[in-house]
Design a protein around this nucleic acid. Structure first.
Lengths: 352, 352
DNA sequence: TTGAAAGCGCTAACAT
DNA sequence: ATGTTAGCGCTTTCAA
């Protein structure tokens, strides 16, 4: 077996020299044509010969080799820093992936399981592979510690923030989301709105609650007179809380829920008690969860948590250039989505 | 600026020669130590010096360079061949990711949006990056056309099959899942079970229905006497179908649903009609969907679609060696998960 | 307008 | 027991 063959398994892809040979030019010329190298003038005829050879052989440059040479890999690392890896992570990834497609990048995905140690290790693994940039994402919006290793490449925080780190962050505008949800209910004529919140300690919970209160005050109402029960974002907590609410006394005309899953639980609890939605009480969710909010009956009025948009934004900002990355926090709007679980209260109809 | 500096930006990572210099050995020796190259005997003292230098500098081999040299990249391509990128894709990815962690591999993730053209292109993009193997995954189990390019590397089909392709496939055992779900209901004493199926044309739908019928026949019942209404796997179709079922005549004592989302819809429709679950009628889901089945009230009895296990299996089989990949189809068991939405029918209690 | 040649950081066969 | 050296496939300066 000749030396030539030993290094070229039969099934392997064509290399640049194969193209050069076929086109009757030097390997360098092939690079010049393919990369449209500036400052290199290639005759039109040569370019055609090269392109034809490329097409004929089905040649594609080896990106590992390109990467080694150029120190970049056309790959972005996506670090999912959360215990779970569910529908919201999927949405951000989907958005980031879309943007990457347009840029010719690919996503190298890792999941830390929520451990900082794992996160640090995985970022190193990513960097070992020449990842050009990093998206560090959490699902429950929260404060994180960005591993030092991440400093080596442009990094953007998705749905989380690192207090003592200059890395830019992309976050949903939860205050406004909470405010607009409450405002929509107020606009329908509701004056007695209960709020079944998610886990009280979370950033998103507090922000949404703040928006809720702002809206009430804006309508001249006293937030202290409105029931606020705290749950944990799971469907069963919506169910339990609504039962508690019903036992407690006069029924509000509308119920805002921490998220769509809690709203589903609330819906179930309400129906079980013989209370109709939205005729007897309006229910408002949050998240616009894929395959849930729009599909249940009644279809849920909610606020869309735009994880896909945020993922896309992250990848776009990263591609826009490491240093040109928008610094500080970017707040992304969470648009209101009105469906069938909300309506004017019975009283308002009488009044009208 | 000296030549030396021009090629070594201040912030760049240490290279192998830096370690070699610090340890007072040749670069090759560093490789030998780090890779535990067989057939090379390194004195214990030298090994220690090298390892210490590695630790001191925080040296990590550049995998792009290793990859270029070895023709492998410690990276597996995960192709999500579906329009959606949701909770089930997330589950398979999570499983595959877990297995990859143990192997020292990372996942390069792409999403085809369900287009064959895109799939072909993306696989080429993956291969350009020296991906060692491919997981080609669909969410709705179905027949796919595996792009030719995939032939270059070991490929495993996840939740799909390519009729004229030798690539091994990992699939859920839906027939058995459907059978066991129905059997559980029969065991509780139900004799009149309706089935609200998912989209009639899908492989999974047919398989589950077949299992359902097998179980009925096994119990000496005639499947033709049992209502089978077909929907589309969305929650609203469960809702609509249950209303249709109630209008139609005598109510069955149990309802099997195409999936958990349909079961949620059915639950909503049932409650709305004043029918209690499981007291008046039992409801059985399918999928054991994350953050849904276990959380709603009543918690849903269902069959677990083990996408995480399947993802893990795929990555493991791939790592077990390209050629040693288990050929043909691997059926993965879908275990029954009994919760609170099922109970013995009222009649059976009397009889007992 | 094109080609030669020096690496990018590493592995592994071969030499010492 | 360790070092030398020839690439892996590509980009890019410099020379022709």
């Amino acid at each position: 077996m000749s030396t030539d063959e030993r290094h070229r398994p039969a099934a392997s892809r064509p290399r640049r020299v194969d193209v050069a040979r076929l086109a009757g030019v030097s390997p360098a010329t092939v690079s010049f044509v393919l990369n449209q190298t500036t400052g290199q003038t290639i005759s039109d005829e040569t370019r055609q010969r090269v392109l034809q050879a490329v097409a004929e052989l089905g040649y594609r440059p080896n990106r590992a080799a390109q990467g080694l040479r150029q120190g970049r890999s056309a790959t972005i690392g996506f670090v999912n820093h959360d215990a779970d890896f569910g529908v919201f992570a999927a949405a951000s990834i989907k958005g980031a992936h879309e943007a990457c497609m347009r840029q010719g990048n690919l996503l190298l995905l890792v999941n830390t399981g929520g451990s900082n140690r794992q996160a640090a290790q995985l970022i190193v693994d990513l960097l070992d592979r020449q990842t050009d940039a990093l998206i560090f994402a959490a699902v429950g919006t929260r404060s994180v510690v960005l591993p030092d290793a991440a400093r080596r490449v442009p990094t953007i925080l998705l749905n989380c923030f690192a207090p003592h780190d200059p890395a830019p962050a992309i976050l949903p505008d939860e205050v406004r989301g909470g405010r607009e949800a409450a405002q929509a209910l107020l606009d329908l004529g509701h004056r007695d709105i209960a709020y079944l919140t998610g886990s009280a300690s979370l950033w998103a919970t507090k922000a949404r609650l703040r928006g809720f209160r702002e809206a009430l005050r804006g309508a001249g109402l006293d937030p202290r007179e409105h029931a606020v029960l705290s749950g944990n974002y799971h469907a069963d907590s919506g169910y339990e809380l609504v039962r508690k609410l019903l036992r407690r006394g006069p029924r509000p005309t509308a119920i805002m829920c921490g998220n769509d899953r809690m709203a589903v639980g609330a819906l179930l609890g309400l129906l079980e008690a013989g209370i109709r939605v939205p005729e007897d009480v309006s229910v408002m969710g949050y998240d616009d969860q894929f395959q849930l909010a729009a599909e249940i009956r009644p279809a849920l009025s909610t606020v869309r948590l735009p994880y896909d948009v945020m993922g896309r934004l992250a990848a776009e900002q990263l591609a826009a250039g490491g240093s040109a990355v928008h610094t500080g926090r970017t707040l992304v709007h969470c648009p209101l989505v009105m469906r069938d679980s909300t309506a004017a209260p019975a009283g308002a109809r009488t009044r009208a």
